[in-house]
Measured scan of single mutants.
Amino acid sequence: MSIQHFRVALIPFFAAFCLPVFAHPETLVKVKDAEDQLGARVGYIELDLNSGKILESFRPEERFPMMSTFKVLLCGAVLSRVDAGQEQLGRRIHYSQNDLVEYSPVTEKHLTDGMTVRELCSAAITMSDNTAANLLLTTIGGPKELTAFLHNMGDHVTRLDRWEPELNEAIPNDERDTTMPAAMATTLRKLLTGELLTLASRQQLIDWMEADKVAGPLLRSALPAGWFIADKSGAGERGSRGIIAALGPDGKPSRIVVIYTTGSQATMDERNRQIAEIGASLIKHW
């Protein structure tokens, strides 16, 4: 067993022997301040990774656009098919120029040779490549099948209805392509620590998230040296922004954090800054 596999296998073990965790309302004060600064709703939840206990939450059962955070769930569904012998990570998928959609920095470079399922998941999570996500959605049967996968996990809230990039439209009061912070946090925890996926697939999923290259201005910008984070960000229309993450000190994750916002007129930089400040408060009061 590799060191990384050992780390993920012992996530519940280490967490069980940690000192009790206590909620700190100071972080919620910052979440509410972010709402004021952005002029928009902000949803927040913080779960203990081992027990699933909610440590703090704000608007945990209000719907927010998922945006690209759905790509972690998508690759979880792909990995479940791999575990069941219905898919192979090494299978190569070929596609054409007509398949390319807006923001496809990886797939646009491989029109000639195609990409493997493993490479597509890596591109979808680490670079948020939209064509990679659409190609992977095709392998599982489309958005409705991802929703069905989530329902089978016990998540009857999260739903995907459309493809990239239309799913980022974020129309107010439109339930399409949305989740709730509580539902997303619980589902992410199941994917990373539950028995739904094999140990190898859980490790692969967290490795992809740990290698995320496009979430630097968010929670990662607030992390002290030595902290662990595996995350996936999302951005959408109407001032929408979000991030889902597993993080913790001492090089291992111990909490799940989900943050979503929508309806702001603020710039992307300002949305990023507010999420980073929430992260800084979380870490300060850990």
Rank of each mutant, 00 (worst) to 15 (best):
I45Q: 05
R202Q: 15
M127G: 06
N50I: 11
P60K: 14
L192V: 10
I256K: 00
L199Q: 14
I278L: 10
G142P: 02
V29R: 09
Q86H: 13
A276Y: 10
E61T: 13
K144G: 14
T107H: 01
A123R: 01
A276F: 12
R7H: 13
L160E: 02
G85C: 08
W163A: 10
I11C: 14
K213Q: 14
L79S: 03
A84Y: 10
A40N: 08
G242C: 06
A200V: 11
G194T: 15
T193I: 14
T139L: 11
L167K: 02
D174N: 06
V72I: 09
R241A: 04
L160V: 14
C75Y: 00
L73Q: 05
R92M: 10
I243G: 01
P253S: 09
W208P: 00
M66G: 06
G194I: 05
A200P: 13
A16K: 06
E62K: 06
K284G: 10
D83C: 04
L160Q: 07
A170Q: 07
T178Q: 03
A280P: 01
E46L: 09
L28V: 11
L10A: 13
C18P: 05
L205Y: 02
D129L: 00
S122D: 15
Y260D: 00
Q4A: 10
P143K: 03
N50G: 15
L111C: 10
E166R: 12
P143I: 05
V42Q: 01
K32Y: 09
L79Y: 02
D207P: 02
G52S: 07
L282S: 06
P224Y: 04
L146V: 11
E164F: 00
T178S: 12
S96D: 12
T112N: 13
L136G: 02
E277R: 12
G39Q: 11
A15R: 02
S80Y: 15
R92E: 08
D269G: 13
L192M: 15
F17C: 09
V101F: 08
D177K: 01
I259P: 00
P143E: 05
L120S: 03
R241Q: 04
T139K: 08
P224K: 07
F14D: 00
Y95R: 01
F22V: 06
K232Q: 00
I171A: 15
T147W: 04
L160C: 11
P181D: 00
E237S: 15
I229W: 02
T116F: 04
G216A: 11
E210A: 10
F13E: 02
M115E: 03
Q203W: 07
G114R: 03
L47M: 12
H24V: 15
I3V: 07
L120K: 00
L120V: 05
D48W: 03
K213N: 11
I11N: 05
A246K: 03
E169C: 11
E35Y: 02
S122F: 13
G154Q: 09
S104H: 06
L247T: 06
P165Q: 06
R255H: 05
K144V: 12
E26K: 12
V257P: 00
R63A: 07
E277M: 10
N98V: 12
D113A: 12
A222W: 06
T187A: 09
S68H: 00
G236S: 07
D99V: 09
N173A: 14
G226M: 07
L47Q: 07
E175N: 13
L196P: 13
L74R: 00
D99F: 07
P65K: 04
Q86W: 10
W286M: 07
